[in-house]
Structures are given as structure tokens and as C-alpha cells.
Simulated assay, not measured.
Amino acid sequence: MKTFKIVLLFLLIPIMAFSQIEGEDDFYLDGDLIDAKFNGGGIEKFQEFIRQEFDYSKVTKPGTLEGAFTIDEEGNVTKIRITQVLDIASATEFIRVLKKCPKWEPARRKGKPISIEIKYPMVFKAKK
């Protein structure tokens, strides 16, 4: 009986290890989520766009403004909303900039385009 347990142990360990590796390979080969891209880059390219287009003179006080928007399956910016209001002028400016935003390359899951929501905070500090 002891020999049977030892043989069974040596047989099951390689099988369990193989199944874990196979599962990890399947996860990556199936093509899990690929993030949306803005102008061929990531969120950094989007930040550059915001910095260039946003009129900072509209911001009247320090604090955080947070907006949320959806990148649909075609790469359009839709469902724009402000989730944390700093003041009306800066919120309006943020919406204006997002409305003029060019198309994104949509996110993909398993090779198919999907829509995703992005939350984007902007922190404004007091001028010295």
C-alpha cells in the first residue's frame, strides 16, 4: 500500500504541473484583454492630447476633476460624464476636449473589439 501511494504521488505531480502550465499558455494564447490605444500609444499619448487641448485658464481652484468615458467597439469616445466635479467651468472644458478627441484603436478581447470605460482624473494644484 505504501508503494502504491508513492507511485501514485510520482504520477500525479507531473500531471498537475503540466496542467498548470497548459492553463497558463491557454490564457495568453486566447488573447486576453488588449487595452485601447490612442494615436498609436497608450494613456501617455492621451495625456499629451489633453495637455495640448485643455484650456487651463478655465480652472478656478485647486482640486481633482474626474471624468469617465467609453471607448466603443469602433474607437469613438462616447458616454462622457463627470464623476467628480471641481467646478462647472473646468468640467465643461473637459467635456469639450473629449468631444473633439480623435478615434481610438478599440480594446480587444480574444481578437474582437470591445467597448471599455476609462476613468480619467485631473489634479490641479494652486499657483504659487
Rank of each mutant, 00 (worst) to 15 (best):
F27N: 09
A68H: 12
K61F: 02
D32H: 14
I82M: 08
T60N: 10
Y28H: 13
Q52H: 13
D55K: 07
S57F: 05
K79E: 15
D87I: 00
G31S: 02
F69V: 04
V97I: 08
E44C: 02
I50C: 01
A89Q: 15
G41V: 00
F49A: 04
K99Q: 14
I88G: 03
R51P: 04
E66S: 15
N39D: 09
Q47Y: 15
L29P: 01
Y56F: 13
D32L: 13
S90I: 03
K99C: 03
G63P: 06
K45H: 12
F27Q: 11
R81Y: 11
L29I: 12
E73M: 05
Q84V: 05
D72G: 02
D26T: 12
F94R: 11
T92L: 11
G67S: 12
D30I: 13
K37I: 01
S90D: 03
T64R: 13
F54G: 02
V97G: 01
E73D: 03
F54I: 03
A89W: 13
L29M: 14
K45M: 08
G63A: 05
K100A: 08
F54Y: 15
E44K: 11
G75I: 04
G31C: 00
F38I: 03
K61T: 06
V97Y: 06
S57G: 02
A36F: 05
K100C: 04
T83Y: 10
D55Q: 07
I95D: 14
I34V: 13
G42D: 14
F54D: 04
G75T: 03
F38S: 01
K58L: 06
I71G: 02
L65P: 07
I50Y: 06
L98V: 05
T64M: 13
Q47F: 12
I82Y: 09
Q52T: 13
T64S: 07
G41S: 01
V97H: 10
T70F: 06
P62G: 02
I43R: 13
L33V: 07
V59Y: 02
K45L: 09
I50T: 04
I82T: 03
F69T: 04
K58P: 07
K100W: 02
D55W: 08
I71C: 00
N76K: 12
Q47L: 10
F54R: 06
K37D: 08
R96S: 08
F94D: 09
F27G: 03
D30S: 10
Y56W: 11
G42L: 09
T92N: 15
V59L: 04
F54S: 06
I50L: 10
T83L: 08
K79C: 01
K37E: 14
G31W: 09
L86S: 01
D32W: 12
